[in-house]
Computed example of a mutant assay.
Amino acid sequence: MHLLGRSPIYDVHYESLVSNPELEIRKLIATCDLDWLSKCLKFNKSKSTITMASAVQVRKPIYTSSVGVWHKYQEHLQPLFDALDDD
């Protein structure tokens, strides 16, 4: 998490999350100053009511099939990457 005058945004890198979910989820929970619960790793097994449009997705385990897919669109995304680098 970025603090000390910077935006309080915690960056989660998808590739890191899918390759080592426990480590990344533990870091996120700690950054949020929340207590660790082992069921954080079993989010897809929860019986809680989900009222979001992505309810079906929430019930699925973390998957890796989207890793690197963005590369197909890199040419179109490059102007955005360049604009972000200007900051």
Score class of each variant (00 low, 15 high):
72 K>S: 07
18 V>E: 07
23 L>H: 09
50 I>A: 12
54 S>K: 06
43 F>A: 03
78 Q>S: 07
64 T>K: 13
59 R>Y: 04
36 W>E: 02
53 A>H: 12
87 D>L: 12
32 C>Y: 03
4 L>M: 06
51 T>K: 13
15 E>R: 10
80 L>V: 09
10 Y>L: 08
65 S>C: 12
20 N>L: 06
22 E>V: 02
13 H>D: 09
63 Y>N: 06
9 I>F: 04
34 L>H: 08
66 S>W: 09
41 L>E: 02
36 W>T: 00
11 D>T: 03
58 V>P: 00
78 Q>Y: 07
36 W>M: 03
65 S>D: 14
13 H>E: 08
45 K>I: 01
48 S>L: 12
31 T>K: 05
66 S>M: 10
19 S>C: 05
60 K>H: 10
8 P>Y: 10
35 D>T: 10
71 H>T: 07
11 D>N: 05
37 L>N: 11
82 D>P: 01
85 D>H: 11
27 K>Q: 12
42 K>C: 08
74 Q>N: 09
72 K>E: 11
39 K>E: 15
78 Q>K: 06
34 L>P: 01
65 S>F: 13
53 A>Q: 15
12 V>A: 09
34 L>S: 06
27 K>C: 06
25 I>H: 02
69 V>C: 14
28 L>Y: 04
54 S>R: 12
26 R>Q: 12
